[in-house]
Write a protein that binds this DNA or RNA. Structure first.
Lengths: 77, 77
DNA sequence: GTGTGACTCGAAGTCCGTG
DNA sequence: ACACGGACTTCGAGTCACA
């Protein structure tokens, strides 16, 4: 699984957990609205400074946006 | 402190901890030697897939390369 | 074994709009 | 409130020669 897809999923999850719209997050992180949309769809490999800005805007750790931690990947033998 | 500087420091620290030269790491991560050099000097905001490849080559977590955790920043007021 | 400037090129990122 | 597209600019990705 590509890191940008992991990031895409984590970003959307974290944003929704905070109850923010893409536009609100975009404004907080000073990033273009449509670019946030692209990131959540896994279109781009974001640079670490946008990841950093997003983490700050979401008040979470950078690691939380890039973690591959799975919840439903228990191998059933 | 800019995230790319944090990354630069952590990358160099992690590489040396593994006892690797820039050349060896470059070979393992399939990245140009001089580009690794640039990253360790904080020239670029690396994209997350480069960070991901380096983390794998170093056998560590992505978070470890991006963490701002300080060891010597205890404020002595 | 590493730092650096110069270079090309394509992806990152912005700004306009539409449904 | 979001997906998606086009046109645009900026900057990271990647390589080379040289110190």
């Amino acid at each position: 699984m590509e890191i940008r897809e992991v990031f895409a999923r984590n970003l959307r999850t974290a944003r929704l957990a905070k109850g923010l719209s893409q536009e609100e997050l975009a404004h907080r992180a000073d990033i273009d609205r449509t670019y946030i949309s692209s990131l959540e769809r896994g279109v781009y490999n974001a640079s670490i400074d946008v990841v950093d800005r997003l983490a700050k805007a979401l008040e979470i750790e950078v690691a939380e946006l890039l973690s591959r931690k799975k919840s439903g990947t228990i191998k059933r033998h």
